[in-house]
Design a protein around this nucleic acid. Structure first.
Lengths: 197, 197
DNA sequence: AACCATACGGACCGCCGGTCCGCTTACGCA
DNA sequence: TGCGTAAGCGGACCGGCGGTCCGTATGGTT
């Protein structure tokens, strides 16, 4: 059982790095012009520390992203209505996608950094599988919806970071108009939650 | 009217570069390990020629992509049924998205290269605007479909290159199963083209 | 043939992700 | 509290890439 506990300074540095990266990504215009050296400098550590702690650039971004996203995931896995289980499927699908949209609006640059990593990235991060299968299971409970697997992929694609960024940033769509547009679209697919199932 | 015609060797080289790039992207595993130097070498020209002719990496990929995609665009802009105008909207929306899906299946690596360019890329290439407004206009003719603007974005997102690549490549979905899944999903949104409007 | 604008090509540059290794420091133990 | 040691640190360094530059070659024109 080689479960050695890390040294205190290592832990402190890890937090400092995550905090610095968060700050820099939030402040920058395009995620690729915050470099690893920038993050190291802002955190007051050496570059070696970054790479030892996170492996590579992708690892760092992914760690940061998942840390920030964790509350949402928990709320979906076992939280109260409308996100948690025990919610009627159409309503829950809508709530989940709305939550993802809001998260990406609130963490635009970070999400952009993650999904813009490598070339075919978002789909090979293991967390995507979680989102996909979670949503698929919800959709499967909706009678008459064919091919829940593909539908889950397609609906998740509608809230991808770069699309959200394009609409909210470049095209200046308001948060509420985006949420309304998404809600209308999702409703079209899953049926109206207001109507009795 | 400064419309000077280019030299003959310049034209030959331009074609050689496009052909070489096409070949290399089709053969490679991940688009980012085709370098500009590789393309220049394969085309038998110097790197300077590449950058003079296309500006930068994105410009080259974009030129290649648009050249290959042009037939599809023409067929949509003024072709016969079911792609061209004069097709009932629900049927046409389905046909357009199916055509895009097939194109991306047939040019996986090239599409991946284009959409993986920069970080928030596909939405700032001017050709995206064409696709979006074309599809939006079709959707607007479907009665009862709210927010055609957002719906057009969302439907286009369902056929993004990296998603298609993920499903067809990593997850080994067959061409026909993908087309069926997309058709079912689109039908859910636009209504069944088989039913009278 | 002679002239020149156009285009060629590859040496060169700056930057960035990632590595390496000599030095520092926190921690367990007595 | 002092000591030995391994875990951790950090920044000089590296390889490779996109992009530039400029001396040279070449197709077009008269």
């Amino acid at each position: 059982m080689p479960e050695r506990k890390p040294r205190a300074d290592a832990l402190r540095n890890r937090e400092a790095v995550l905090a610095a990266a968060d700050r820099l990504f939030a402040a920058c215009e395009r995620p690729e012009d915050v470099t690893m050296a920038d993050i190291a400098a802002a955190a007051g550590v050496g570059k070696g520390t970054l790479f030892r702690g996170f492996g590579d650039r992708t690892g760092l971004i992914r760690a940061l992203y998942e840390a920030r996203l964790d509350p949402v995931r928990r709320a979906i896995a076992d939280g109260p209505r409308p996100l948690g289980p025990g919610t009627p499927p159409a309503e829950r699908a809508l709530a989940v996608l709305d939550a993802v949209l809001c998260f990406k609006l609130d963490h635009r640059h970070l999400s952009l950094a993650l999904e813009g990593t490598g070339s075919d990235s978002p789909y090979q991060a293991e967390h995507y599988d979680w989102w996909h299968s979670t949503l698929r299971e919800v959709l499967e409970q909706i009678p008459g919806l064919p091919d829940a697997d593909f539908a889950a992929h397609a609906l998740l694609a509608a809230v991808r970071a770069d699309l959200v960024d394009h609409l909210a940033g470049r095209r200046r769509a308001s948060r509420e108009s985006l949420r309304a547009g998404l809600a209308a679209f999702v409703t079209r697919v899953v049926g109206d939650p207001g109507t009795a199932p």
